[in-house]
Design a binder for these strands. Structure first.
Lengths: 156, 156
DNA sequence: CACGAATAGTACGTATACGAACGATGGCCA
DNA sequence: TGGCCATCGTTCGTATACGTACTATTCGTG
């Protein structure tokens, strides 16, 4: 009963993993939801403009890089479906941060760009961007921070 | 101009970190948003009931563990503020999955519990829970999966 | 005991997030 | 060229998520 060969045999008979108890707090989806909530809260406090949300910021940063983008392409670049993008763009346009014009080469498309105001604001916020990420990653040491970004890139 | 000493001197003059370019796709908040989106999509497809959302599932799992909880305490356990919790509970009650009664010991509180239907459903969904997490973590190997859960726990 | 602070739940407004349906336009190919 | 299908943007409905304000109740302390 206690020799090694028998033990190995028993291992063969029950090859499945020990199957830890299922705890909702340990599931990746739950942890991602909580982490995202915390990241959004830190963004709101540290980005330097309480009226700009993370998705609005992402959109403005991308428009700042590309100068002009169709609404759909911008949505693909920042990971929002077209219905969500529609609302984000509408709010940015209402506030005068984004302009739009019909694409002269394709009447289906709307070309978006930052207004002068939008450029000014995004360049101000970009100065706080690194601090937001730093604060969010603060509980981790440098190696862990790199790991987390790497792992999130892989499952994103 | 090209000897080593001069080079080191120049390095001393600019001692701050190389400061990589700021790319929105590499920021932790952005990556968390994308990863959470993907996890939610995988949940919706694999949990086995298209009408149950991740937060509804979390709430039902917790009610299944504790039998009876006040709305506020449930919200703290699953990480939702009371306004969000209110909506989640209302929808679960509308569908007959959750029951409520006033707390006899504290008239401010509402005690929540699963109905028989709610118990039946959450026990069915719990069988798919591990598969949802497995699918979400699929792009990572076993060591990376453990690392990610560990790092997310630390920043959550 | 009384009063102010804290807590529980509700209601309202705003902002993602996304599926589904819709009309307009463009691309492709028989 | 004509017709079919894909793409783009809009709209609607539903569901988190959260700040704020409000009522009711409870607690703590003087």
């Amino acid at each position: 009963m206690r020799n090694v060969a028998k033990k190995q045999l028993e291992t063969k008979v029950v090859p499945s993993a020990p199957s830890r108890p299922y705890r909702i707090e340990e599931q990746v989806g739950y942890l991602l939801r909580r982490a995202h909530q915390r990241a959004s809260a830190i963004f709101q406090v540290n980005i330097g403009d309480p009226n700009i949300t993370p998705t609005q910021y992402s959109s403005m940063v991308k428009l700042n890089e590309y100068t002009e983008l169709s609404q759909n392409l911008l949505g693909r670049l920042v990971g929002m479906d077209k219905a969500t993008m529609q609302g984000v763009v509408r709010r940015l346009k209402d506030r005068g941060l984004v302009d739009s014009r019909p694409d002269p080469g394709d009447a289906r498309r709307t070309l978006l760009s930052l207004t002068t105001d939008g450029q000014r604001i995004v360049n101000k916020l970009l100065m706080n961007g690194p601090a937001v990420s730093r604060e969010t990653l603060k509980p981790l040491n440098a190696a862990e921070q790199r790991q987390l970004l790497d792992l999130l890139s892989k499952i994103g």
